[in-house]
Simulated scan of single mutants.
Amino acid sequence: MSDSEEDHQLGEEWEDHDSKLSDGELQEAFAKGLLKPGMNVPLEEPKKAVNNVEGLKKCLAEFKRNLVWVERLDLTTLPALDILAKAEGRVEPGPGGDQINADDDFQREMFFYRQAQASVLEALPRLQKLQILTKRPDDYFAEMTKSDQHMQKVRKKLIQKQMAMEKSEKAKKLREQRKFSKKVQVQVLQKRQKEKKSMMTAVKKYQKGMSDKLDFLEGDAEGKKATGAPSKPHVNKKGPSAKRKYKDSKFGFGGKKKGAKWNTKESHSDVSGFRGKVAHGKVGKKFSKAGQKNKRPGKEARRKMKSRK
């Protein structure tokens, strides 16, 4: 027997017992060259589907029971009529129309939905005829799968989540309000600066004689009324005030100043405005006896009063 035949025979032996070998034995065999690529590739044979019709019928006959329909509640119905497709004039997919596309999820689920709908429409009258209630009563009590403690934890978690969402929404609204109020404040400040600038320009023009209008003062009063600020009392601008007239009569009002206060013959002879008390400096002095009573006696008089006692 040649060396190649011996290696082949040994390889077959290792292949037959490879499942029983340990890791150390496999490493030793690999070192000797007994394990080669392609020797340990498992070959999977295609599975054969067994359709044993007789066996299936036999199994069905074993567990089949002759029960009334109320105990079975089984129905085999066609899907309900698709009213929308009929109204639009489309061909209804299903047994009576086009074939249903199994890859179309929407079409497939709608077919299941209409089939369940047809089953409900057929089952409800039969249940009502048998006097079987189909609605859950208001005082229905069912045993919960979850414990009350677990449901309390779930409820607490849901409440915390809801509170966190409300807090987040509230913070979001506050941020929006702050942004809006800041924007309004900036607009108000810009408007005030603009009004102030225009008012200063109008004042400068009025001072330089470039304009004879005082509209900026009226605008200021209107602005105070709009903002609700207290405004100064209305002053009649048609003529000078009483104070201004008195000062004009006393000090003059422009024009020549030098020699304007010189006496004339008429003013010298006019003594209608003469007042003796003012001329002799007696204004404000008290000559009544009540003032003399409260006067403190002198030092000598006080000493004599003490000696008398």
Results as ranks from 00 to 15, higher is better:
residue 221 A to I: 09
residue 135 K to C: 00
residue 6 E to N: 11
residue 89 G to A: 13
residue 257 K to I: 03
residue 199 M to D: 11
residue 90 R to S: 12
residue 208 K to C: 12
residue 116 A to G: 15
residue 64 K to W: 06
residue 119 S to Y: 09
residue 156 K to C: 12
residue 46 P to N: 07
residue 67 L to E: 10
residue 228 G to A: 11
residue 94 G to M: 09
residue 161 K to G: 05
residue 96 G to Y: 08
residue 64 K to D: 03
residue 68 V to F: 15
residue 180 F to A: 10
residue 110 M to L: 09
residue 101 N to S: 06
residue 233 P to M: 01
residue 194 K to M: 12
residue 175 R to M: 11
residue 213 K to T: 13
residue 184 V to F: 02
residue 185 Q to E: 12
residue 19 S to A: 07
residue 85 A to M: 15
residue 154 V to R: 06
residue 284 G to Q: 01
residue 60 L to Q: 03
residue 31 A to V: 04
residue 102 A to W: 09
residue 269 S to C: 03
residue 306 K to F: 05
residue 43 L to I: 08
residue 274 F to G: 08
residue 16 D to S: 05
residue 121 L to T: 08
residue 143 E to T: 07
residue 204 K to P: 01
residue 92 E to T: 13
residue 237 K to S: 01
residue 246 Y to W: 15
residue 183 K to Q: 06
residue 63 F to Q: 11
residue 230 P to Q: 02
residue 284 G to F: 00
residue 284 G to T: 01
residue 130 L to Y: 01
residue 173 K to L: 09
residue 274 F to H: 02
residue 131 Q to V: 09
residue 277 K to C: 11
residue 56 L to N: 08
residue 196 K to D: 04
residue 126 R to S: 01
residue 73 L to Q: 10
residue 256 K to P: 00
residue 36 K to H: 14
residue 14 W to V: 01
residue 141 F to H: 02
residue 35 L to N: 03
residue 107 Q to T: 12
residue 104 D to W: 06
residue 64 K to A: 09
residue 35 L to V: 02
residue 218 E to G: 06
residue 292 Q to D: 06
residue 171 A to D: 14
residue 250 K to Q: 03
residue 41 V to W: 07
residue 291 G to M: 12
residue 34 L to T: 00
residue 67 L to M: 11
residue 21 L to V: 10
residue 81 L to C: 10
residue 135 K to F: 00
residue 160 Q to A: 08
residue 245 K to F: 11
residue 190 Q to N: 14
residue 148 D to E: 03
residue 288 S to Q: 03
residue 278 V to Y: 10
residue 166 E to T: 14
residue 186 V to W: 13
residue 240 P to D: 10
residue 225 K to N: 10
residue 205 K to G: 05
residue 268 H to E: 08
residue 67 L to A: 06
residue 82 D to E: 07
residue 90 R to Y: 08
residue 289 K to D: 00
residue 296 R to C: 12
residue 113 Y to V: 03
residue 139 D to C: 03
residue 173 K to H: 05
residue 167 K to P: 08
residue 184 V to A: 13
residue 208 K to L: 03
residue 208 K to I: 06
residue 67 L to F: 13
residue 252 G to M: 00
residue 151 M to A: 05
residue 161 K to L: 08
residue 283 V to F: 13
residue 22 S to T: 14
residue 247 K to R: 07
residue 34 L to G: 00
residue 42 P to L: 05
